[in-house]
Design a protein around this nucleic acid. Structure first.
Lengths: 117, 117
DNA sequence: ATAACACATGAGCATGTATTCATATAAAGA
DNA sequence: TCTTTATATGAATACATGCTCATGTGTTAT
């Protein structure tokens, strides 16, 4: 292969050009990657799934998750920055919930995938 | 907070117990994380998206992706192991395609999410 | 005012991961 | 057979990430 271009005659240049035109923009790819990256961690999946069941404060999440309160707060900040969760303060407590119904759909598609095999 | 249990009287123990019962199993969480982790990388998203447009050989992917052929092969192996792509040999070439229609749904949900804001 | 509590955050560390480089393998052609 | 081409893979490296620990911030209660 020379310069990433294989010389096989049968390579369908037209197909490659067509696919190139259909490709996602770089910013779209980045945004998609951020969402899937957010869901690509066992702790965050557990948090998001728990929040899909009920609105929960940090303390309650800590009771559900077997890791430190600090670790959970760090992950919540990440999810907040990506706008996957929103929060509401009530006295000393902070209650988190899902910010977007699409996340539920992402979950159900993912679950459909693992059940499919 | 003592031992991960906050003493606020208003904390709804019943709610926490109910959520705990609804939680995903650890293996489900792991499998979900693996899928999202696979899609949580810009290179892999680009590969998967390209394959959603057409069946492509490694050489054609190399023309589309601006990284080395080696890097692409490494990523394809990962996607193969997760059964997100399948392949077909034809002489020297190896043609890859998506292994599962759920991935398209995962994409469309993700795209819906980034367009939603 | 002071203490206790719920939560957030910075630092540091250990582990994971994505890439390149060099090289191996396998098919096709000369 | 010897070379070229298409792909795969192991090693090394640079970077990202998830956790804990220590501490900071803001709120409530005494």
């Amino acid at each position: 292969m020379v310069d990433g271009i294989c010389e096989i005659k049968s390579v369908d240049r037209q197909k490659v050009i067509r696919v190139k035109e259909e490709m996602l923009s770089y910013t779209d790819v980045q945004e998609l990657a951020n969402i899937y990256k957010a869901m690509g961690d066992e702790t965050r999946i557990t948090i998001l799934y728990a929040l899909s069941c009920a609105e929960l404060c940090v303390c309650e999440l800590t009771q559900l998750l077997d890791i430190s309160q600090s670790a959970i707060s760090h992950q919540l900040r990440l999810l907040r920055n990506l706008r996957l969760v929103k929060y509401r303060k009530e006295g000393k407590q902070v209650f988190y919930s899902l910010d977007d119904e699409h996340i539920l759909n992402l979950f159900s598609q993912g679950i459909a995938h693992i059940q499919h095999r």
